[in-house]
Design a protein around this nucleic acid. Structure first.
Lengths: 183, 183
DNA sequence: CCTATCATGTAATCCGTTACATGATTAT
DNA sequence: ATAATCATGTAACGGATTACATGATAGG
């Protein structure tokens, strides 16, 4: 028995804006702002596209809405330019910096799902040889791109992520090569 | 050619329900229904969880809403049991079967994104050694799970997908092992 | 000049997740 | 019997994608 008859949680319709859920997208924004100190959504878009976007892309529209959301919740401050285009520029607050630090320090106990369309088709019985043709080409191209990227200098974290990407692309090439030959 | 000069597409607010976008989730439903002939959302949930869910999971709520959506659009027929629980049972229509066949036959030119939370943290400067500890454990467990699964018999498509999963988990273990030792 | 393309943003839609519920079964 | 778990579904919310727009800039 529950003394209170109201087991139903009646939350305020307008959840307090300072208590939002932080998603990977949130941390991508926080992470870049920590490195760039100040940025417009377009700056973020550029930064993401050239680096982390290789394994975790973000649509540009989200790089407009997400900073707004983070700013409303106190993780960023937004200042609007008064001249010309009146663009929005964002910077981290102490809260934002803290949230990023906490997240970076927390262990990850989950393993990611591959979510590979090619594998999904394989699973449902698609012809392996036919599939392998397209996939091999695509993965070889991606691998080449990574190998070129790897020539350049880059921050340690990005290098590590890139190394992992190289490993997985090589694995993909191995896998689809095998299928291409003997189904 | 369409004689209409109106380049501006004024679509009806209520998009025709027979013209929906098919997502990977849609094909997962179609794919299982092709194999199972007839199924309830719960059947689908079970089937997904034990197989494809290992690399492409689907929330159970979606296995209720997605078949409804597909049925409205003519890819499935829904019949409600008249007895007892009045569960909904779905079967493929010719349209559904055709859509699945087309999808399976179409090449995939995109490569998937890893979207690995561990990599994301690495990218943003998390401590590699600390991260590696948790990740190694998780990936070793997943690898063991796959190796056990691999002992069993299974359809050819699932076997191929599993092989790929094994390769990637081994790659993860290699990668994080290396980081665990010498950052 | 004209027109692509880049830059910058808003609005609408929708899929996917999370939360909420309740009816059957099984175990204790 | 009662609690726990499985089975079965609906509702609400929100993040992400897609579509829509317009202002600047550079190339021809």
């Amino acid at each position: 028995m529950d003394g209170s008859e109201h087991t139903v949680q009646t939350r305020p319709l307008q959840a307090p804006v300072n208590d939002i859920r932080l998603t990977p997208t949130s941390y991508i924004v926080l992470g870049f702002l920590a490195a760039m100190d100040e940025a417009t959504p377009y700056d973020l878009k550029q930064a993401v596209a050239q680096s982390v976007g290789n394994f975790w892309s973000v649509q540009h529209a989200q790089l407009y809405s997400e900073p707004e959301r983070l700013a409303r919740a106190g993780y960023l401050v937004e200042k609007r330019e008064q001249t010309g285009r009146r663009r929005k520029r964002y910077t981290l607050t102490a809260r934002g910096r803290g949230a990023l630090r906490d997240w970076l320090g927390a262990p990850v106990h989950a393993v990611p799902e591959l979510r590979d369309l090619g594998l999904l088709k394989l699973f449902f019985g698609a012809d392996p040889t036919r599939l392998a043709a397209g996939q091999l080409e695509a993965h070889r191209a991606k691998l080449a791109e990574y190998e070129a990227l790897a020539e350049q200098e880059m921050p340690a974290g990005m290098r590590r992520a890139l190394d992992s990407g190289l490993g997985h692309e090589r694995e993909f090439v191995r896998f689809w090569s095998r299928l291409a030959k003997r189904g």
